[in-house]
Amino acid sequence: MSTEPASKAIALRGSTDHVVEFFGYAVNSVLYQRGVYPPESFERKSKYGIGVMVTSEPKLREYLVNVLERVDQWLMESDLRKLVLVLADARTGATVERWAFDVQTDGSKTRRDGENAGDANGEETMKTEKTEKEIMQEIQAIIRQITASVSFLPLLDRECAFELLAYTDKESATPDECEESDPKYVRDGVEMRLRSFSTKIHKIEAGVSYKTDDA
């Protein structure tokens, strides 16, 4: 039986729901905006006060549901440090874009690429109470940035595949359905930081690395 205070458990459950839901819409938005899947395999849905595109392709939906269920477990156990969406050249396997979502959990520190899960970078933890409306507005701002990404990201003039990478605590066991992977960085790429959002439990900082036309 868990000894975690009821109020803390409830807050963690609600915050985790927000983060998992955001990840789902963010991944769908990137896959749509970057043309990884054909536009006709997406349908428009109203969320966060804006229109978002969500896949209607059965196999992709099933895959994302399974991934997000695992992400939910990691978040509830405070094990998830980063979720990364990699877009790679389907022919060569070279990474062309890398969308990273850093996860900072109440009382912990954000872990950056290349750092051990137990290392802290000295950033402050979240202490400010947030209203539901404020959280939704912050999430909306990130989704809007993803939607607008086509205005600054290079054209993907090749067939691309995607992969989701999860960074967890070193103590966290690797699930049977997952396998170890290298970071899949963008070689000689450019990095752009996006907006962030936070609940009183989690803070998510987003960014994208991409290969320029002359790289």
Rank of each mutant, 00 (worst) to 15 (best):
G35K: 03
V36N: 08
V36R: 07
V36C: 07
V36D: 03
V36L: 04
Y37V: 02
P38Y: 06
P38H: 10
P38G: 08
P38M: 06
P39K: 11
P39Y: 03
P39E: 12
P39F: 03
P39G: 10
P39Q: 10
E40L: 05
E40P: 00
E40A: 02
E40D: 11
S41I: 01
S41P: 00
F42I: 08
F42V: 06
E43D: 08
E43H: 11
E43V: 09
E43R: 12
R44L: 09
R44P: 06
R44F: 04
K45Y: 01
K45H: 02
S46A: 12
S46F: 09
S46K: 14
S46Y: 07
K47R: 14
K47G: 00
K47A: 13
Y48H: 13
Y48C: 10
Y48P: 12
Y48G: 10
Y48F: 14
Y48E: 08
G49Y: 01
I50Y: 04
G51A: 14
G51W: 12
G51H: 12
G51I: 09
G51P: 05
G51T: 14
V52R: 00
V52S: 01
M53P: 00
M53V: 00
M53T: 01
V54F: 08
T55C: 02
T55Q: 05
T55M: 03
T55Y: 03
T55W: 04
T55G: 10
T55I: 03
T55D: 02
S56T: 14
E57S: 11
E57D: 14
E57P: 04
P58F: 00
P58R: 07
P58H: 01
P58I: 03
P58S: 05
P58L: 06
K59V: 10
K59F: 06
L60I: 07
L60H: 12
L60Q: 14
R61C: 03
R61W: 01
R61D: 06
R61M: 02
R61L: 04
E62V: 06
E62Q: 15
Y63Q: 13
Y63R: 14
Y63C: 04
L64A: 02
L64W: 07
V65E: 12
N66R: 15
N66K: 15
N66A: 15
N66H: 13
N66P: 02
V67N: 09
V67T: 08
L68R: 07
L68Q: 08
L68G: 05
L68A: 05
E69M: 11
E69Q: 14
E69W: 07
E69T: 13
E69D: 14
R70M: 10
R70W: 07
V71T: 09
V71M: 11
V71N: 10
D72R: 15
D72M: 07
D72G: 04
D72L: 09
Q73F: 13
Q73S: 14
W74T: 07
L75A: 11
L75Q: 03
E77K: 15
E77F: 11
E77I: 03
E77R: 15
E77V: 04
S78V: 06
D79N: 14
D79V: 00
L80T: 07
L80V: 08
